[in-house]
């Protein structure tokens, strides 16, 4: 899994730079082309695509502790998706 997803809550106006600052991430950690994507505007929830290592470092799950990292969720998987047809 080369890259993973993490979520973060940010008050408006949310920017990628603000998210990186909050999470302590560098440009090497983050897919800046993907950017900061709103998941649920009503809940100020955003997602970033980061390296697996960064996901482990700042994610709040998979660490074995309740509040492992600065992110509000993740690391989450980013699996490939494919068309469902024609059946092979």
């Amino acid at each position: 899994m080369a890259e993973v997803l993490i979520t973060v809550r940010l008050a408006a106006p949310a920017t990628l730079e603000a998210a990186m600052r909050r999470l302590g991430l560098t440009e090497d950690d983050v897919d800046t082309g993907y950017g900061l994507v709103p998941v649920d505007p009503g809940r100020d929830l955003y997602v970033l695509r980061v390296t697996e290592e960064a996901g482990r470092r700042v994610g709040d799950s998979g660490t074995g502790v309740a509040d492992g990292g600065a992110a509000d969720g993740g690391p989450y998987s980013d699996p490939p998706i494919e068309p469902y047809g024609p059946p092979r």
Binding site: L5, G62, S77, P79, I81
Partner: peptide, 26 residues
């Protein structure tokens, strides 16, 4: 008309970052 065919690239069910079985995935 698409989806994920394989659990290979996913975290296993029960892992907090899993997609296939978790409503909490982004």
């Amino acid at each position: 008309s698409w989806g994920s065919f394989s659990p290979r690239w996913d975290f296993p069910p029960g892992h907090p970052g899993n997609y296939s079985d978790s409503a909490a995935h982004p």
